[in-house]
Design a protein around this nucleic acid. Structure first.
Length: 505
RNA sequence: GGCGCUUUCAUCUAACGGUUAGGAUACAUGCCUCUCACGCAUGGUAUACGGGUUCGAUUCCCGUAGGCGCUACCA
């Protein structure tokens, strides 16, 4: 292992919203970089011009800003290894592919997509490789004159990598160990496309990682099959001694059924698969996001970190600092993880619970304002303090807490049936009179006075309290009664009591 | 089809070859209690299958089966 500085990258394609699996990959890269005092680079891999989606790059950047994953270098962050957008690096790729061509490690291929399609149909398991390239139309089978003529005629061509067969290629993977594959099963991958004058992922990726001095490539398992090709490319360029280490992460799978997690699963099962709400500019479709659904970024990160990795201890609630300290690539699991979104809501619950009321209140206040409810922030904080333990998400506070700010207009039918007896009107009238006469409306004083009254009259505490609750809340939910009445204040409490007595009879 | 990766409760996962196979989520029950929750306690369910190696295998090897990925001039 080399002593060089740790430099890792997250390199998405701007083809749409950032998938939650991509977020996890970025997180692992971030944790690894921070732990080793290294750099995290943000590179945009936009070599497929046909799939470019406007706004995607900005969306990805905003997602990481919300999550609190910071990059050291890259698109929008600057740095000395730029440009960091592959579409702006055409010349670099061009000179590199020319080198491969000059050294006869790659060749020109003139076969049209239609011709290739024909071959695939005619020949079972057709692959463009050492066994078939001699039968195809390329600079290996054509004379130099023919090749020059075709180029002069403006023929379209691609550059293909000349894979040497019968070679055992080893990929050292930090998670999976030594992965071997015979080069004969590899095809002569297209390195340079004819259509847009841009390289394919494979070429651009290797050139950039080398030039940007990337030390570790941490990416999804879907890249494992092409890793041997990448090794061959490093070798072809003579960069094998500085080739980065590889770590292929297990994939995030559908919670039910089969296959990898997709946008559809989120729609179907009712959970977000994107960090932020995404408006697809092409289809106009709107997909929900973790942010808009009320998740706290820390909870999302904690949840994702533990999907495919764990510190080996029984601690599950881990801060970013904890994660940075404990993260270990070699302890990542190898098999794909079904996306357990229910556990994600539990993580959010834990973070809502453990965050201070002062931190949660502004989030809730924003929702209240949308409802036209404007309250001093101290009162919102008080309500949050009383109620946050019963929700997974801040927005769930809304229906649960409305009664704190708005008097009930109706009374829940079931609760009324159960809690409002024939004697209730009389008892509540007495209670209202009692509370009205108090000089001190503190929780303690109310409780002392009311409990004394209950005892003297030989009443049942539950009966009184449940009826009382119905009058203030309109339902059978909420915190301790005197917490509610103290919050509402004497005047409002009496008013609600009398109102309910009148309505319920 | 070919190639590769992979396999412990329903789910996420732990266990230098020796453990009553542990934790968490979800679920169920109980406790607490003026309600709803929180919380606490308790409970059930797992080493895919078949061969080896070994005194001893969840752990190492081989096979089978299942799962996943790749197999584009997409990344």
């Amino acid at each position: 292992m080399s002593e060089r500085k740790v430099r890792v990258r997250f390199a998405p394609s701007p083809t749409g919203a950032l998938h939650i699996g991509g977020v996890r990959t970025a997180l692992y890269n971030y944790l690894f970089a921070r732990q080793h005092g290294g750099d995290l680079i943000f590179r945009i891999e936009d070599t497929d011009s046909t799939r470019f989606v406007p706004g995607a790059e900005e969306y990805i950047l905003e997602s990481f800003a919300w999550l609190g994953i910071q990059f050291d270098e890259g698109v929008s962050f600057g740095g000395h290894y730029g440009p960091y957008r592959q579409s702006e690096r055409r010349d670099i790729y061009k000179t590199h592919v020319a080198r491969l061509l000059a050294e006869e490690k790659a060749y020109l291929a003139f076969d049209t997509p239609a011709e290739l399609e024909e071959q695939r149909k005619a020949v079972p398991n057709f692959q463009y490789d050492a066994t078939t390239r001699g039968m195809m139309c390329n600079s290996l089978t054509l004379s130099k004159e023919e090749v020059d003529q075709r180029i002069a005629d403006g023929a379209q061509y691609v550059v293909r990598f000349k894979v040497i067969p019968h070679e055992e290629i080893h990929v050292q993977d930090l998670i999976r160990g030594d992965v071997k594959i015979n080069s004969s099963v590899l095809d002569d991958k297209v390195l340079y496309k004819s259509a847009d004058g841009l390289p394919t992922y494979h070429l651009a990726n290797i050139v950039d990682d080398h030039l940007m001095e990337i030390s570790h490539v941490i990416r999804g398992e879907e890249w494992l099959p092409s890793a041997p090709l990448h090794v061959l490319l490093y070798r072809a360029f003579g960069w094998e001694d500085t080739m980065p280490s590889f770590a292929h992460l297990p994939l995030l799978l559908k919670p039910d059924g089969k296959g990898k997690l997709s946008k559809r699963d989120g729609d179907r099962l009712g959970f977000p698969v994107f960090p932020l709400e995404w408006h697809d500019p092409k289809t106009g479709e709107v997909s929900s996001g973790y942010r808009e659904s009320g998740y706290l970024p820390e909870a999302v990160l904690n949840f994702l970190a533990l999907l495919g990795w764990n510190p080996g201890t029984e601690q599950e609630i881990l801060s970013m600092e904890d994660l940075i300290r404990l993260f270990d690539l070699t302890k990542c699991s190898k098999a794909g993880a079904k996306f357990d979104y229910l556990k994600g809501t539990w993580f959010n619950h834990e973070y809502v619970l453990n965050k201070s009321n002062e931190a949660i209140a502004p989030l809730f206040d924003a929702l209240l304002q949308e409802q036209g409810i404007h309250e001093p922030i101290e009162r919102v904080e008080a309500v949050v303090g009383m109620m946050k333990s019963r929700v997974n998400f801040v927005k769930e506070l809304l229906p649960l807490c409305k009664f704190f700010f708005v008097a009930p207009e109706t009374y829940d039918e079931k609760t009324t049936k159960k809690r409002w007896k024939e004697t209730s009107a009389e008892q509540m009238t007495q209670l209202a009179d009692l509370l009205e006469g108090l000089d001190d409306f503190s929780i303690a004083h109310q409780e002392a006075s009311v409990m004394k009254w209950i005892e003297e009259k030989g009443l049942h505490t539950g009966t009184i309290m449940n009826a009382f609750r119905l009058t203030l809340v309109g339902d059978g939910i909420g915190p301790h009664m005197f917490d509610i009445s103290a919050f509402l204040g004497q005047e409002e409490t009496i008013r609600r009591l009398r109102c309910a007595i009148e309505k319920l009879g």
